[in-house]
Design a protein around this nucleic acid. Structure first.
Length: 866
RNA sequence: GGGGGAUUAGCUCAGCUGGCUAGAGCGCUUCCAUGGCAUGGAAGAGGUCAUCGGUUCGAAUCCGAUAUUCUCCA
């Protein structure tokens, strides 16, 4: 059975059991402070379990893209070394929200595995929660007796709290779980040692394939458990492992999920035969695994970058390049060539990659080029080491120049150098604790005041409202205390979809508290304040900063018009890749492969302004089923998570239809004026436009006009200001040249004059004179010119440069060779006469000072030094 | 968000612990040679050493700020 069929059968099976099949959520998370990436199937349903959102179906199943690159059990550096860890993997799951519970979950799991997939019953084991004294929890006898209806008692094992009691976090929903394990070893081995003894023992071929979580408790802040009002089921089955089991392989990498990628890699690595060299095999696995994580992250809108989630993606890609570079001799970009294969392979399951193949390929290619350049520079830097490389040096290579440590030690070994790995690790540790100290953040417990229910957002209609505080908590960051408040309903818009959060105040009869920002934590709307209201029990009057909201609205609606105009002018490949909308500016990142020409920019701007003047009324539709929204032509963004019902913002159905939760003008005319301020590049294949609207645009235009007027006036109103400025620059340049030539000429004249005053003393051509020159350069020029003329020169010049004294001493080449005179020492001595100091090289030195009247004394002393 | 680098000719980069009249290769211009070429030779143009401030007799070089950029950590 191929992997596509396995996946299809899973979804069909649960559909037949009344489940709604939903698409995978994006890999990259936007509004979750505790997670960067989706790391399990339940992430997209977190709010349903926490009570922040109401599920739209009570039975759901899907396959979810997951990324595990951090945390205790899944260090990125381990992936590829063994045969079963991955960065990106698919998790098949089925959920019940207050609907069916243990009985059906267990029965269906068994039916699917043994009847649909035909997995051998005599190789399956199940575990159930064996109880925990600390929590005062008994054995999960419900699960145990339910299992006994399907499987013999000796195949049911008890698990401890660590393996068989699942918790979302320190607080919140939790419950016992039941895992299904499979023994994939050969008959001989099974005879030697029963699989039972290897369950949960990290054996690569006796593995857990499915975890059924039965959520029935809530862990409270004091650690105690309370029964949830409704029971839920949350299951997760590793797709790659399941394929391995069904396809009777001994490694995930031997399934048809990875094999096509690996064959392609091996073929291009000088037709390497996979399986013949352990190190090379690892490299092949690393590359095959990592391209999946990187490609899908980019398709979901996460570009490689140097911070946060983007940095994780960069690191994954670079790790793959590093392995290819070191072990498979890939010295040119190669990873990008795998995208096509992957996109085709998963076209039907995750179409987002196939639809953006060109873009993703391009981003990866560019990123590879830049990393290979970094490697090249590092290699060059390594050339200076000849014996040993200290920990600090290795760390500097890594930390400052991005040169990976394992490459440093690899190359060191090749060249017979030693590397201090311990020292490197110490430096690394220092850096980590530095960063951690900086990012330290303490989050307090939520303190409940009113009834904890989902906050109603009323900000589309209201900017003011009476509200009550439902709960609050304290957070501490960089020694600054902040408070997060949650209201029963709120007019404050929480930052999302690029639009910044509202600010404003909440007031009661006797106090006023400023709301400095509004954010979303998943579905929860959180208001930030610098202090806690004293009487939070009472009602407050909440007021949003209306001016700011107004300006932000203008910018947000203009962003929609811009998006539509860009697609009209540049083509349908333009997709939003990022957006920032605040009261001052709008910033829009989009996929496009070349810099926009001035004509294109002008055209886009013209279209937007035309739509503004047409004063198109806003058509806002809420709770539109997503399928219907799409059929209206609404643009859904890759990497954005949409519910089943969405809000659709339309400005002329023929022009701009977008799924959007932001706030908008009632008609485009309100925007007034739209002005593009800049167009630039953010990454390969991504351009950025910054623009202003309304008052901002007016200020921008006025500012530019004022500047232009000022320039015109300064330049006496020329016909063509640009041409005359150009002229001015050229003229200045040529004048500079002429002036320099003049000085040179002057220096020559002075040189000739000085040359006539030369006298022979002690076998040297001596000149000791006072001169007046325009600048220090000229003095230097004279000295060098005389040096070229007299090989036995001994020159002492006391110069008046614009009223400042300076002394120059020059010794001719021939005389310098005798070491009789040292210009540096001489000038130091002479400098005393002008209250200054100086120095230089043995043959030429200068000194400056404060006392212009000392020049004559310099001459006297100068003569005495000869 | 925190740390460490970098910014010098059109391009790629040298320039040590202040004291070159700031250099190299490629490219460019002109001339000469060669049957063609990624040819050979000669001469030449091209620089606000990122910007602003400071220290110093003197700053490409040291210090601070800003901008841009690379890199590591969170």
């Amino acid at each position: 059975m191929d992997s596509a069929t396995i996946r299809k059968k899973f979804l069909e099976f649960f559909e037949s059991k009344g489940h709604k099949i939903v698409p995978s959520a994006p890999l990259v998370l936007k509004n979750d402070p505790t997670l960067l990436f989706t790391n399990s199937g339940m992430v997209q349903f977190k709010d349903n379990f926490l009570g922040n959102a109401v599920p739209q179906h009570n039975r759901i199943a899907d396959t979810q893209k997951c990324l595990r690159v951090s945390g205790k059990h899944n260090d990125l550096e381990d992936v590829g070394l063994d045969t079963y860890h991955h960065t990106m993997f698919e998790m098949l799951g089925n959920w019940s929200f207050g609907d069916y519970f243990k009985k059906d979950a267990i029965a269906w799991a068994w039916e699917l595995l043994t009847e649909v997939y035909q997995l051998p019953k005599d190789r399956l084991y199940v575990t159930v929660f064996g109880g925990d004294k600390g929590d005062n929890m008994p054995v999960d006898t419900d699960a145990e007796s339910l299992w006994k209806q399907h499987i013999s008692a000796d195949r049911i094992l008890y698990g401890n709290k660590k393996d068989n009691f699942w918790e979302m976090g320190e607080q919140g929903p939790c419950g016992p779980c039941s895992e299904i394990h499979i023994d994939l070893r050969s008959e001989d081995e099974v005879k030697k040692k029963p699989g039972k003894e290897l369950v949960n023992n990290d054996h690569p071929q006796v593995v857990e394939i499915w975890n059924l979580v039965f959520m029935e408790f809530n862990r409270k802040a004091d650690g105690s458990l309370e029964k949830l009002p409704a029971q839920h089921v949350d299951t997760g089955m590793g797709f790659e492992r399941l394929c391995m089991a069904i396809q009777k392989k001994t490694s995930n990498y031997d399934t048809d999920v990875f094999r096509p990628l690996m064959d392609f890699i091996a073929l291009h690595a000088d037709n390497y035969k996979y399986g013949s060299d352990n190190k090379k095999d690892i490299a092949v696995r690393v590359m095959a695994d990592h391209i999946r994580a990187v490609s899908f992250a980019i398709a979901d809108g996460q570009l490689p970058s140097n911070t946060g989630a983007g940095y994780v993606i960069r690191r994954i890609l670079r790790r793959a390049v590093r392995y290819g570079f070191s072990y498979l001799n890939f010295k040119e970009p190669f990873m990008y060539r795998l995208v096509n294969l992957l996109a085709l392979q998963l076209k039907d399951v995750f179409p987002e990659l196939h639809k953006q193949e060109d873009y993703v390929t391009r981003v990866i290619h560019e990123e590879e080029i830049s990393f290979l350049r970094t490697l090249e520079k590092g290699l060059k830097r390594m050339e200076v080491f000849d014996k040993s490389i200290s920990g600090e040096q290795a760390f500097e290579l890594f930390d400052t120049f991005g040169f990976p440590f394992d490459l440093t030690s690899l190359i060191a070994r090749e060249r017979g150098l030693t590397v201090d790995e311990k020292g490197f690790q110490e430096e690394m540790q220092k850096q980590k604790s530095r960063s951690k100290a900086d990012a330290a953040k303490e989050t307090g417990d939520w303190v409940l005041i009113g009834e904890d229910k989902k906050t109603e957002f009323i900000g589309y209609e209201h900017l003011e409202s009476e509200i009550r505080i439902v709960k609050y908590r304290k957070i501490k960051q960089k020694n600054k205390e902040l408070f997060q408040l949650v209201f029963d309903k709120t007019p404050f818009y929480a930052e999302s979809g690029g639009q910044v959060g509202d600010t404003g105040v909440i007031e009661s009869v006797n106090e006023k508290v400023f709301i400095t920002d509004t954010k979303k934590e998943n579905e929860l709307i959180v208001h930030l304040s610098e202090r806690l209201p004293e009487s939070f029990g009472s009602a407050f009057f909440a007021r949003v900063d209306a001016r700011k909201r107004e300006l932000t609205k203008d910018n947000h609606s203009a962003t929609h018009l811009l998006h539509a105009a860009l697609r009209q002018v540049l083509g349908k490949h333009v997709e939003q890749k990022g957006s920032l909308v605040n009261e001052k500016i709008l910033r829009f990142d989009f996929s496009h492969f070349a810099a926009m020409t001035p004509e294109e920019i002008e055209k886009v701007e013209a279209i937007v302004n035309e739509k503004i003047r047409a004063n198109i009324p806003l058509n806002e539709q809420r709770n539109v089923p997503i399928e219907k929204a799409k059929s209206l032509g609404a643009m859904a963004l890759f990497g954005e998570k949409y519910g089943e019902f969405v809000r659709v913002i339309t400005f002329d159905p023929q022009f701009s239809v977008e799924l959007c939760g932001g706030t908008h003008v009632s008609a485009t005319g309100n925007i007034g004026l739209f002005k593009i301020v800049s167009e630039s590049s953010v990454a390969a294949g991504v351009r950025r436009i910054e623009a202003v609207t309304a008052q901002g645009a007016q200020d921008f235009v006025n500012g530019s006009m004022a500047l232009l007027d000022e320039l015109k006036t300064l330049m006496k109103n020329p016909k063509d200001i640009s041409a005359s400025l150009q002229n001015l620059i050229e003229e200045k340049h040529s004048l500079e040249k002429k002036l320099e030539a003049m000085y040179q000429q002057q220096a020559n004249l002075m040189k000739d004059e000085l040359a006539r005053k030369v006298s022979k003393q002690n076998g040297a051509s001596v000149i000791v004179e006072k001169v007046s020159v325009p600048n220090a350069d000229t003095l230097k020029n004279i000295a060098y010119a005389l040096r070229n003329q007299f090989a036995d020169l001994l020159l002492i010049l006391a110069a008046d440069i614009d009223g400042k004294p300076q002394v120059a001493v020059m010794i001719g080449e021939q005389l310098a060779a005798t070491n009789k005179y040292h210009a540096g020492n001489m000038v130091k001595e002479l400098a005393k006469e002008i209250d200054g100091g100086g120095g230089g090289q043995p043959f030429f030195a200068t000194a400056g000072g404060k006392n212009i009247n000392g020049l004559d004394a310099v001459l006297v002393k100068g003569k005495s030094l000869i």
